[in-house]
Amino acid sequence: MSAEKSWPLYEVFIRSKQGLAHQHAGSLHAADPQMALENARDVYTRRGEGLSVWVVPSDAITASSPDDKGVMFDPADSKVYRHPTFYDVPDEVECL
């Protein structure tokens, strides 16, 4: 299939029965958003996975570049003090 003849790509996000937030489930092709929603229902929720579905045109997503990985994320590596691991948790606290 040539590029101009194939349907645009959509990213699918599903909120499961237990889940609080929509999670990325995968992607699929569809001609329009309604079709994307129906395809997502058929492809990703037929085993009872979901209660809510979002579809987003893939080209509407601005993504970080793999080349920027070092610049973007490495600076966070050396900042262990941002993890709350230097505190003694009082015994009385049960649900942390």
Binding site: W7, L28, H29, A30, E38, N39, D42, V43, R46
Partner: peptide, 11 residues
């Protein structure tokens, strides 16, 4: 016609 429709029809 497409894999998505194949699944939809199978369903």
């Amino acid at each position: 016609p497409t894999v998505e429709l194949d699944i939809a029809l199978g369903n």
